[in-house]
């Protein structure tokens, strides 16, 4: 299969702490790849490294063979790396304008940007909220603004950071199909999630991180039966790891 993103030996140290150490993996074009791990495993740091908000100490990141490692975040976005943030902080403007912000990178006219933004809002089913302020929306809807904003950058690879966290079961059921729908529209997805059921239901492969290192990679079934993964989550002694 064709690899969209190739990460090799990626390392980030904060002082003496290796938040991400020697991580290597590939994201295949068109897949939904899950990323799990206990709190503090380095998942969000890894997202920050891929999207360029943090500079890595070592290693390389390549998208379709193009080296992103030294690029500033806005150029990586132009190359096709989109992302959402764990803590949703919409800009202080209407829902539609929030989605227009990234579109302005491609379309300079406000009218064109508005039209494109509407199309994306329809995709995430927020078209009726277009003129509302984000603060009047539910958390589930605000998470969808995040997704819409990221989609507006026309990403090839979309990094989703806990887009389901904090939602009630019916909201999860509402937002979950969206991830699949986005993938079906031609966007490859790498996503962090703590809700195991949801994660296992939609990802084709899963990466597991613990203490900055990648400890497992495989189908959901393979990963959940992996001894190292069980140890990372339950904290047993496991000499094989």
């Amino acid at each position: 299969m064709d690899d969209l993103l190739v990460v090799r030996n990626l390392t980030k140290n904060f002082g003496g702490l290796a938040a991400v150490s020697e991580v290597s993996f590939e994201v295949r074009r068109g897949e939904i790849l899950g990323l799990i791990g206990p709190n503090g495993a380095g998942k969000t740091t890894l997202f920050n490294l891929i999207s360029g908000l943090l500079a890595s100490n070592q290693g390389s990141i390549k998208l379709e063979g193009e080296d992103l490692t030294k690029m500033p975040p806005y150029r990586r976005s132009a190359m096709g790396v989109g992302r959402t943030f764990q803590v949703v902080r919409p800009f202080d403007m209407t829902v539609l304008e929030n989605v227009m912000v990234p579109i302005f990178a491609h379309y300079k006219s406000a009218k064109e940007a508005k039209g494109k933004a509407y199309e994306i809002l329809e995709m995430v089913r927020l078209e009726n909220m277009a003129d509302s302020m984000p603060s009047s929306l539910t958390l589930a809807q605000r998470k969808r603004i995040e997704v819409a904003r990221a989609l507006a950058t026309k990403p090839k690879l979309l990094l989703l950071d806990e887009v389901l966290a904090g939602l009630n079961p019916s909201e999860v059921a509402e937002n979950l199909p969206l991830i699949r729908q986005v993938r079906d529209s031609g966007v490859t997805i790498l996503f962090i999630e703590h809700l195991m059921d949801a994660m296992m239901a939609i990802s084709e492969r899963v990466l597991v991180m613990d203490q900055g290192a990648l400890i497992a990679c495989g189908t959901p079934d393979e990963v959940t039966s992996d001894q190292c993964v069980i140890t990372a989550y339950l904290g047993e002694e496991a000499p094989e790891c």
């Binding site: 975040p73 976005s77 902080r89 202080d92 912000v101 990178a105 990221a150 950058t153």
Partner: peptide
Amino acid sequence: ADEDAAKALGIN
């Protein structure tokens, strides 16, 4: 509103 989010959305 959010410098990091703006950067990640492709804004210089």
